[in-house]
């Protein structure tokens, strides 16, 4: 530990060539965040889910990577990556522009993304995005999350995600209109700000044509989840 701190202070000495009259106002920061890293208990193989983001940048402009992945029985069933430029437009809101790549399920799909992300009145975390895909496909995703502080470290957090699409895409089993809704309720304990194990429940349901495509598979599923959230 001591050697490490010596190494770090030496490193600092190299990187900070000239110290100004005060600390650096708007330093380049990098934040990585695992919102969900969990196992979902269901019939058959239990899915493992990873949802998180990585950003690098300054107060008002950042580059974001958003990652969503689900593995079942050693197979990646879902892998979605978004690369976005995020720009602050008001006190609590950012506009996010970029691209989304769906690596799984196959066939791969590419999208252009325009979204808003921020904090709405009454402390609702909002992430809303429009996706423009190939062949005139359009998608809309609305996500919101709330945090109830039961104690200073025990937080109950409901969240909801809704996906809508403009067209049928039989290859990826997506139907037009309301496609799916996912509702979660997670109870986490912040051992540190940066590390919180949690338990919860997750419920998801497919609707309309999307449900028709999935006939025979899971249309509605409720699962108990256990996982950790963490950031640096």
């Amino acid at each position: 530990m001591k050697t490490l701190s010596k190494f770090l202070s030496a490193l600092l000495a190299f990187t900070v060539l000239q110290v100004q009259a005060m600390g650096e106002d708007d330093p380049l920061l990098v934040m990585g965040k695992l919102d969900q890293f969990e196992i979902r208990d269901t019939e058959g193989d239990n899915p493992r889910v990873l949802a998180g983001e990585l950003w690098a940048g300054y107060d008002l402009s950042k580059l974001w990577l958003k990652l969503d992945a689900e593995r079942v029985g050693g197979e990646t069933e879902e892998l979605e990556v978004q690369a976005l430029y995020s720009r602050a437009i008001s006190a609590f809101w950012n506009i996010q522009l970029g691209a989304r790549f769906d690596d799984k399920p196959e066939p791969r799909r590419k999208w252009a993304v325009i979204g808003v992300q921020g904090l709405a009145p009454y402390f609702f975390d909002i992430d809303a995005a429009l996706f423009f895909g190939e062949g005139g496909q359009v998608g809309l995703r609305l996500e919101t999350e709330y945090e109830w502080m039961l104690t200073q470290r025990l937080v109950l957090s409901p969240d909801i995600e809704i996906n809508l699409y403009g067209k049928n895409d039989p290859a990826t089993e997506i139907g037009s209109g309301l496609a799916d809704v996912e509702v979660g309720l997670r109870l986490r304990y912040e051992i540190r700000r940066e590390f919180a194990p949690y338990i919860g429940v997750n419920w998801q349901k497919k609707y309309g044509k999307t449900a028709d495509y999935a006939a025979g598979g899971d249309i509605e599923d409720a699962q108990v989840v256990i996982g950790v959230s963490a950031w640096f």
Partner: peptide, 8 residues
């Protein structure tokens, strides 16, 4: 800040 207002 570990003095946020809680549900309690």
């Amino acid at each position: 800040n570990f003095q946020e207002r809680t549900v309690g």
